[in-house]
Design a protein around this nucleic acid. Structure first.
Lengths: 148, 148
DNA sequence: TTATATGCAAACAATTTGCATCCTG
DNA sequence: CAGGATGCAAATTGTTTGCATATAA
């Protein structure tokens, strides 16, 4: 499997776009940044390597990578957007509505069901997201203790 | 089944909150407003009945109703939040990434799977969301015709 | 060389908040 | 009456954009 940077480079060129040093740096950072992040997180990390990279460039690059299909928005946020590198294997999220903890899970059953469902409606599915919202074990315990 | 207003009224009182005429109006409007809406939509509708109700009051009330569990955020949006009245029976969404069309579907299989999954992780699920993103039948056809 | 990218600051849009006033309980 | 709720306008915040300048191809 080719490095992310090279994959992106190919597609960029194909579209008449350029691989600038800022974009290269952002992509490299992305590789080491696993899990979920928002644009400001990413900007902070990128700044560690080169503090002259502007926030708008990071925004622009994230949007570009989203269009190119390398990143996707999670839509779990509270007023801001979380992103993740599009994973090789689909996975979903358990979100604690009290402490915000996010647990990822994989579910083959879900995939199969989604595919069948989409077919019924004539949709061609590009990606699927399952978000289960509730209380994580820790918060459940704390809620019991506090007896709110 | 009691009217929504009465349900909310009970809980409000219980929490030392008040049922003002603005809140009552918003809740009544909500009843006749099915499907998905954002806060500005709701405000527009509420204004039809009383144009002196401020946008901030609508925002505050929506947040309140969300906390109380009568509304929930859909997190499908593009820069703004969509809400829906928490439905008696869970349902999910097919979203067309080209034209934005949203189709609701119900899926008992999904429910069962989610419950089992959550159990495995010790989560107590309050609500679940499935968002399948792709191309709706109409857009699929148009894309084929245009031969982009 | 030349169109694409960047950095900066200003613009935006959705949402929140401070405060004087109003009104429900 | 007293404390919660409202309306208004100002403030915040995440994100986008215009423009002069820098740079990849």
């Amino acid at each position: 499997m080719k490095a992310l940077v090279e994959q992106v480079e190919g597609i960029l060129k194909f579209r008449g776009k350029r691989l600038t040093k800022q974009r290269r740096l952002i992509i490299e950072t992305l590789k080491n940044l696993q899990g979920h992040f928002d644009v400001q997180d990413l900007h902070r990390r990128v700044e560690e390597a080169d503090h002259r990279i502007s926030l708008s460039t990071v925004y622009r690059t994230v949007n570009l990578l989203k269009e190119l299909g390398f990143l996707r928005a999670l839509d779990i946020g509270e007023g801001y957007t979380l992103y993740e590198v599009v994973p090789e294997f689909e996975h979903h999220h358990l979100v604690c509505i009290r402490c915000g903890r996010i647990v990822e899970f994989h579910c083959e059953h879900c995939e199969a069901i989604h595919r069948r469902l989409a077919e019924n409606y004539g949709f061609e599915i590009v990606s699927s997201q399952v978000v289960l919202q509730g209380y994580c074990p820790k918060c459940r315990e704390e809620l019991n203790t506090e007896a709110l």
